[in-house]
Nucleic acid binder design. Structure first.
Length: 645
RNA sequence: GCCGGCGUAGCUCAGCGGUAGAGCGAUUCCCUCGUAAGGAAUAGGCCGAGGGUUCGAAUCCCUCCGCCGGCUCCA
């Protein structure tokens, strides 16, 4: 039955081809050059082998070697190369699942213990498999046969029952007589991989669920050439250069000593940055109508029982709590219970709402030891927290105003953030209708502001849905910083109320929000974001004066104490050459260096050099002072007194 | 918490059974210098902690603590 089907190309044009034609046939039809370059296809968005026959009308895109899709194909093949090498050396190992990722691939395996030496041996074996250039062939077999093959392998059987549910026959890929259940697509042969390496290993749970078996996950990556792999490894190393832990030490910002794991010590430099952030956020909180409060870290555990936090935090071991004098005490893991208590002590009319409390609230959470990471994940943290108690009719306005300020803040820091809407999870308290109303409230505001967001089902806190803002660190990992959450449950559980127009009690809605999230995590993020090059308004040291000789020290001191006394100014008084002084200031990422010698002393000027190596000689001191004041006042991100050439 | 890796001078690291080393930094002295490293000298270590093996342990083994990557979890 020879009939034709319609395929639509990425440019929108349509093509008639014979039913059963392959992706490669279509490519040849478009042009012989493209035909030769074809390595795979995207059919209706799904990556497939180039020999896949097209059986019905579809949209098609030809995948060529210079595309991201091709790398995915190569890496998927890389995962098979690893699996084959593993089973050559450890025949008892069972394969679970091995997909490509953004940067490479991993394979989860069971029934085998691997250490670094094992991985080295496996990697050597992988190199041989690539060198042998085995062809990869797709073969099909019946479901029954597949189940038989994986008689002892519960993971592959699980895949047959889920991903491959109902498929008959199912596909395998075979190389050198070794085979693996797989949908494909793959490279034509193992030799297509130009460079392959294993990166690290970890434990991982089957299907990502802690309740399931723990598997050994081995990560690796593959590239089309050795030089591409080298470039990738080089990029990774460079990313580590801006690691906030490294910069924090080099710039003497903070430390996390062994005696207080997960609790940062702010050094004077780091504290200056933090104080600037605090002042900035105080202003924003003021703009939003918040009143600052202060509540204790130490509370009786009873405080968190009515809110549900006790159950949520204590049972999980996440709360630091202990018995003392027959009473259970705890360190607060969040501030909302205390803020709700302040609210409950007042009496409010509908005209008083919103009532808003903010606090730089220090909280403690017993995060699992393996999760701690510099400033990005800690046990003791200070949130720029705030809770607004509002009427239901104020939800959209309140959330929208907050999001607007949040946008302004992230814009100021030149930070790219991803908005996530997190919805009701398994641990949720409260009724379905309440959750729906709250979720709609958040969604409405996001849409009113035209913000793009992802929905993450089931990720919300137990008391209400949440908008989270994720920023990326130097290694590309995502960390939630700012957040806005709507809560109908705590007001209900605590019986919070206000008097309505009808002179009867009504229940307020609670908004939980943090603009930066926590000072710890936010600082970690911006240290990496700026690579330590803080905007002048945040820089721990804004100006460093470099006297050309000791004779110029007096002038330097006068500048520091008089003309520039409004700024954070230090003097480099070590008896070094000017070149070395410049290098040191540069390493310390000081926005402005002022080089002062006899010429400057005589003319009451400064010679300005900024961290971009730009210079401006003979600038009158008052002009430098005024321009710097403006830059700081306007929270500019980059030093701009010296024009960049 | 789990899997793997790692803890040696302030930092980066070498040493891997025979009494602890380098570079940078620090300190002191000399030099007083004009836009990315001037010179000399000195100090600095319970080799993460505890236990074991050994004539002898930084080095081998065990336990604990901490750190790194990942999993899970989260601001």
């Amino acid at each position: 039955m020879s009939e034709s089907i319609t395929v639509v190309l990425p440019d929108g044009s349509a093509m008639e081809v014979e039913r059963g034609a392959t992706v490669e046939d279509v490519a040849h039809e478009i042009g012989p050059g493209l035909g030769r370059d074809t390595v795979a296809g995207l059919v209706d968005g799904e990556l497939v082998d180039k020999v896949t026959p097209l059986t019905e009308d579809c949209e098609i895109e030809i995948v060529t070697p210079d595309s991201d899709e091709y790398r995915q194909v190569l890496r998927h093949t890389g995962a098979h190369v690893f699996a084959q090498a593993l089973q050559r050396l450890h025949p008892e190992a069972e394969l679970a699942i091995g997909p490509p990722t953004d940067d490479g691939f991993y394979y989860d395996v069971a029934n085998v213990d691997l250490d670094a030496a094992d991985l080295d041996a496996i990697e050597a074996e992988m190199t041989e498999i690539v060198a042998a250039d085995y062809a990869l062939e797709r073969v099909e077999c019946s479901r029954a046969e597949a189940f038989e093959t994986y008689d002892d392998n519960p993971y592959k059987r699980d895949i047959l029952e889920t991903e491959a549910a109902g498929e008959d026959p199912v596909s395998f890929y075979v190389q050198d007589g070794w085979r693996d259940l797989c949908e494909g697509p793959h490279a034509e042969s193992t030799g297509e991989i130009g460079a392959i390496t294993l990166l690290e290993q970890s434990a991982a749970y089957w299907r990502g669920d802690e309740e399931n078996d723990q598997l050994t996950r081995v990560y690796g990556t593959a590239f089309e050439s050795e030089s591409e792999l080298e470039a990738y490894l080089e990029r990774r190393e460079q990313a580590q250069e801006r690691d906030h832990r490294k910069l924090g030490r080099e710039m003497d910002l903070f430390s996390v000593p062994a005696h207080s794991p997960g609790c940062a010590h702010y050094h004077p430099n780091g504290m200056r940055v933090r104080r600037e952030l605090e002042e900035y956020i105080r202003e924003k909180n003021n703009d939003l109508g918040y009143e600052e409060v202060r509540t204790p870290e130490l509370n009786k555990a009873d405080l968190w029982k009515p809110t549900g936090h006790y159950e949520a935090f204590k049972q999980e071991g996440e709360m630091f709590a202990w018995e003392q004098d027959d009473t259970e005490y705890g360190l607060k893991p969040m501030n909302c219970a205390n803020h709700a208590h302040i609210y409950s002590e007042g009496q409010y009319s509908y005209r008083d709402l919103p009532v808003r409390f903010s606090e730089f609230g220090t909280v403690y959470r017993n995060e699992q030891s393996g999760e701690l990471s510099g400033l990005l994940r800690v046990r003791g943290l200070t949130q720029d927290d705030g809770h607004a108690f509002i009427r239901p009719d104020q939800i959209t306005a309140e959330v929208t105003d907050t999001l607007e300020i949040i946008e302004e803040i992230y814009d100021l820091f030149d930070l790219e953030v991803l908005y996530k809407l997190e919805t009701k999870g398994d641990d949720a308290v409260g009724g379905e209708d309440i959750w729906e109303q709250a979720t709609r409230g958040l969604r409405d505001s996001l849409e009113t502001l035209g913000l793009e967001y992802d929905v993450e089902s089931g990720e919300a806190a137990f008391y209400g849905p949440k908008i989270g803002l994720d920023a990326r660190d130097a290694l590309g990992r995502e960390w939630t910083i700012g957040t806005v959450q709507l809560d109908f449950n705590i007001p209900e559980r605590l019986g919070l109320s206000y008097v309505g127009e009808d002179n009867r009690d009504h229940q307020p809605v609670m908004v939980h929000r943090a603009l930066l999230g926590s000072f710890e995590r936010f600082m970690g993020v911006i240290i990496e974001h700026f690579n330590g090059n803080f905007p002048p308004w945040l820089a721990p040291e804004q100006v460093r004066i470099l006297p050309v000789s000791d004779d110029n020290l007096g002038y330097a001191k006068r500048l520091q104490n008089r003309e520039l006394s409004a700024f954070r100014v230090t003097i480099e008084d070590r008896s070094w050459t000017v070149g070395k002084k410049i290098q040191a200031a540069h390493d310390d990422r000081v926005p402005y260096m002022l080089i002062v010698g006899d010429d400057e002393v005589e003319n009451e000027t400064v010679s300005v050099r900024d961290r971009f190596e730009e210079q401006l000689s003979g600038l009158p001191v008052e002009q430098f002072r005024d321009r710097l004041a403006t830059e700081i006042d306007e929270n500019r991100v980059e030093p701009g007194i010296v024009e960049r050439s």
